[in-house]
Computed example of a mutant assay.
Amino acid sequence: MANKSKELQIGDQIPIFQLQNQNGELINIQDFIGKQNLVIYFYPKDDTPGCTKQACSFRDQYEDFNHLNAEVFGISGQSVSSHKEFAEKHRLNFNLLCDVNNTVRKQFGVPTNFFGLLPGRVTYVVDRSGKIVHIFNSQFRAEEHIEQAKNILKQLE
């Protein structure tokens, strides 16, 4: 089934959304716009090898993102309990947001891979105004998402 949403591009404003995090708290992205840069990354599934590697890289470099005035959000379609288990198991120190119906994934137009069978792995770097300044789409180079995001954030500061 094709994703009919238009893929957001560099220069587009991100949609305003609210999702629960791994602790069941409702996170409103609008609370961060105007204050910080954002790194919003969509990943396929909790506790799979590539997603774990990516999440742990964000965890290990989270302080670097703080120094670059950026907040990190991981988004996938699993439940609060799945995210909580994943976050606790790997001591994740940032918000994992539950997009159970893939509503936000569709708003961003995140493409699927492998003939639509696997949710895409895409990272968006968003400036303080809520505008997308960088997009990195790679299913298999999970850790490269972190390096690319940091390099773009350094240019923003």
Rank of each mutant, 00 (worst) to 15 (best):
M1H: 06
A2Y: 09
K4D: 13
K4P: 10
E7N: 11
E7P: 10
E7S: 14
D12F: 10
Q13D: 09
I14T: 11
F17R: 08
Q18F: 06
N21V: 07
N21Q: 08
N21C: 06
E25A: 13
L26M: 14
N28W: 01
D31T: 10
D31F: 06
F32D: 13
F32S: 12
G34K: 05
G34W: 10
Q36P: 00
V39S: 05
Y41K: 05
F42R: 00
Y43D: 01
Y43Q: 02
K45M: 07
D47W: 03
T48C: 04
P49Q: 07
P49W: 07
G50W: 04
A55D: 02
S57K: 14
D60Q: 06
Q61V: 00
Q61P: 00
Y62S: 10
E63I: 09
E63R: 15
D64R: 09
F65N: 03
N66R: 12
L68F: 06
G74P: 02
I75G: 03
S81H: 09
S81Q: 15
S82F: 02
H83N: 05
K84Q: 13
E85Y: 10
E85A: 14
F86I: 01
F86Y: 03
A87I: 01
E88W: 07
K89V: 03
R91L: 03
R91C: 03
L92R: 02
V100Y: 02
N101F: 00
N101G: 08
T103L: 06
T103K: 12
T103C: 00
V104I: 14
V104C: 04
R105F: 05
K106R: 14
G109T: 11
G109R: 07
P111G: 06
N113D: 13
N113Y: 04
L117C: 11
L117F: 15
L118S: 05
R121A: 01
R121K: 04
R121L: 02
T123N: 09
Y124D: 07
V126S: 10
V126F: 02
R128V: 12
R128K: 15
S129W: 08
S129P: 01
G130Q: 11
G130D: 10
V133F: 09
I135C: 11
I135G: 08
F136V: 10
N137H: 14
Q139R: 12
H145A: 06
I146P: 03
E147Y: 00
A149D: 06
N151D: 15
N151L: 15
E157N: 15
